[in-house]
Structures are given as structure tokens and as C-alpha cells.
Amino acid sequence: MYQKISLAVQEGEIEEVDQLTIKSLEKGNDPLDVLNNALMSGIEIVGQKFADGELFIPEVMMCAQALQAGIDRLNPFLKQDENPHRAKIVIGTVANDVHDLGKNLVKMMLTANGYEVIDMGVNVSAEEFAGAVRGHNPDVVGMSALITTTMLEMSKTIEYIKTQGLHNGSLKILVGGAPVTEKFAKEIGADLYADDAIEAARILREIL
């Protein structure tokens, strides 16, 4: 049964994942067990196949939707402390920058790796990022910039999050985007840097 669900996730069969998840619950399987050993094990293979160049973006998007269908089914049956997601990530493109392709790919990869992603969209101001951190209490806040001029907005946003006292405890700041380098990420005080969407998922899996 778990194998069937896992395969349906890997094939992006939304309806099938939904139906199989229902059946699995009816059979009395533990929801958390279904989550980890069926849905998540399926999506992990998807993430790996994408990283290997075997699957392409539209296919991964379908698989992520299939995973979500299963999670939505399980959610009402999970106990309060059994979060179906690995961790919570707030993500957005910084102020004055409207490029969202890279950010959306990161969102896709993180979703496909079982993270809950709260997408703030594009042109997100420092205040809006700080507000989202306050409101959602995420494990990671991720910022994207695609123009060299808006890289500086990243620096401003990190500065603002810090002066608001929000960069304490476990919150990690992740940055990325075509012109962003690891060196620059360090200089502006980010905790994490990822070169692309696959890398972002890999780095987060190491810590969360």
C-alpha cells in the first residue's frame, strides 16, 4: 500500500494519491506513518530525480501537487504536535525586484521536500519580511534577488530583521539569486546561501 502511494506521488497522480491515502486511513494505518513512509518517501525520490536531471520542472510541480493532496487528506487526523511538514519557510523576492522564477523554483523544490512554504511574492519590503517572520514564526526566511541593484535590498532586509530582534533563537536567513554569491551572503550577515533550488533543498535538509 505504501509503495503504491509512493509511486503515485512519483508519477504526479493527484487523484490517485488522494484516493489511496483515504483507503490507507480506512484500513487503520497510522496517519504519521502514511506521511513518512508513503508520501514523503515518494517525494524524496522525486527530488532526487529532478536533481539528477531525470525529471523536469512541470513533472516536479505535478508531484508536489500530488503530495499536497495526500497531506491535505492526512492533516485532520494528525495530532497537534504531529506537523506534516519538515519545517516552515517564509520566502520572497526583495524590494524593487519582481523576478520570481528562481524563487518559485526554490518554493517548488522545498515543497517537494516536505517543507511548508509561505510565499510572500515579489517586491517584498524589509517591513513585510519582518512582519511575516513575526506572524508565521518560520524556521527559515529565504530571500531572492535577481538584479545586482536589488542585492543591496537583501542587506537592508537582513539588517532590519536583526534590529527588530527577530534574528534570535532558531531563525535562519537564507539568500540566493543569480547575482548573489556565497561571499556576498556572508558579508551581509545571512546564515545560509544556496546556488540554486536543488542546493537550497539540500542545505535545508542538513539542518531541518
Binding site: T148, T149, L152, P179, T181
Partner: peptide
């Protein structure tokens, strides 16, 4: 020539 070296661009 945008390569992320801000003031040198």
C-alpha cells in the same frame, strides 16, 4: 556586465 560588484559596475 552585472556580476555583483556593485560600485564598480
Amino acid at each position: 556586465i552585472s556580476v555583483g560588484q556593485g560600485d564598480k559596475e
